[in-house]
Design a protein around this nucleic acid. Sequence first.
DNA 1: AACAGATAGTCAATAAAGGTCAAAGAGGGG
DNA 2: CCCCTCTTTGACCTTTATTGACTATCTGTT
Lengths: 142, 142
Amino acid sequence: MKRSLADRIEQYLKVLIERSEDKQIEIQRSELAETFDCVPSQVTYVISTRFTEMEGYFTESRRGGKGYVRISRYHLENGGSTVRKELVAFIDELLQEDELTTSQSDLLRHLVSYGFMDMPPEHRIRLFKHLRKLLVDYVNMD
Amino acid sequence: MKRSLADRIEQYLKVLIERSEDKQIEIQRSELAETFDCVPSQVTYVISTRFTEMEGYFTESRRGGKGYVRISRYHLENGGSTVRKELVAFIDELLQEDELTTSQSDLLRHLVSYGFMDMPPEHRIRLFKHLRKLLVDYVNMD
DNA sequence: AACAGATAGTCAATAAAGGTCAAAGAGGGG
DNA sequence: CCCCTCTTTGACCTTTATTGACTATCTGTT
C-alpha cells in the first residue's frame, strides 16, 4: 500500500483540521506546495477530490496578495440534521406527487443536503422550516 | 490566519462601526492612512471593496478642508434588496447559459423573491451569498 | 471672485496569490 | 499487454492587493 503524494497531503490536512479548535484551517496553497515539494495545482487537486461537500467539508478561498484556502469540516449529524432529513424527505414526497420535476428536486436536494453547514443550528432549523413553507406555497401556486 | 493590510483596515473600521452608537462613523482618509502607514488610496480601496451596498453599508464623503468619509451600516429593509436583485440576476444568467432549466430557475426565483422577507438583513445577505455559491457548485457538478 | 491649501477620488501599473485545463505518467485489473 | 482511472505537472488565466501620479472638489482668505 504505497501512499501517493495526494494521499499524504490529504492526511496532513486532515490531521491539521482535527487538531484545530474549530475544525477549520487556513492554508496558503503555494506554501503547502513548497512543503511537499510539488506544484501548487497539486494542492488544488487534493482539495477538490478529497475535501468535497459530500465528504462533509466546505472550502473557501481568496486569490491575490495574502490569498488563502480555508477548509472547514462539518458534522453532518449534529443539530439540525433531523430537520434536514425531514426536508429532504418532503422534497422527495413532492417529487413522487409530481409537484416538482426531477431537475427541481435534484437541485433542491443538493442545496439542502450540502448547504448551510456553517449556520448556527437554530438558524438552520428556522431556515429549513421556512424553506418548507416556501415550497408549499410554490407548488400550490398554479 | 495571516491578514493583509486591507483586511486589517477593514477589521478596524468594522469594530469602530459596531462600537458606535448609531452604527455610523466618520473618518479622515489621510489620517487613517497614516495610522496604517499606507497610501490614502488604500483606504479608498478598502472602502469600495468591503463597505459596498451589497455588504449592507452606505458611504458618503466630502473633499477639501475638513473632508471626511462617513460609513453607515444600515439595519432595515434597505439592506437586502440589492443582494436579492443580484441573486435573481445571477439565476437568470445561469438560465441564459443553459446551466439551469426553466423549471429550476422559476423555482429559485420564486424562493429568492418571496422568501426570507422576515430575516434580519445581515443574515439574509449571508444567506444569499451562500446560495449563490451553492448554485455555482451545483452547476459545476455534472 | 480668485487663489491657495487641504482633502478625497480615479486609474493604471505591478505584484501576489489561487484556479483551470489538458497532457503526460503511473498503477492495477482483466 | 491493454485499458481505465487516478495522479502529477506546467502553461496560462483570473482575482485581489498595493502604490503612486494625476484629478476633482471643498474651505477659507484676500
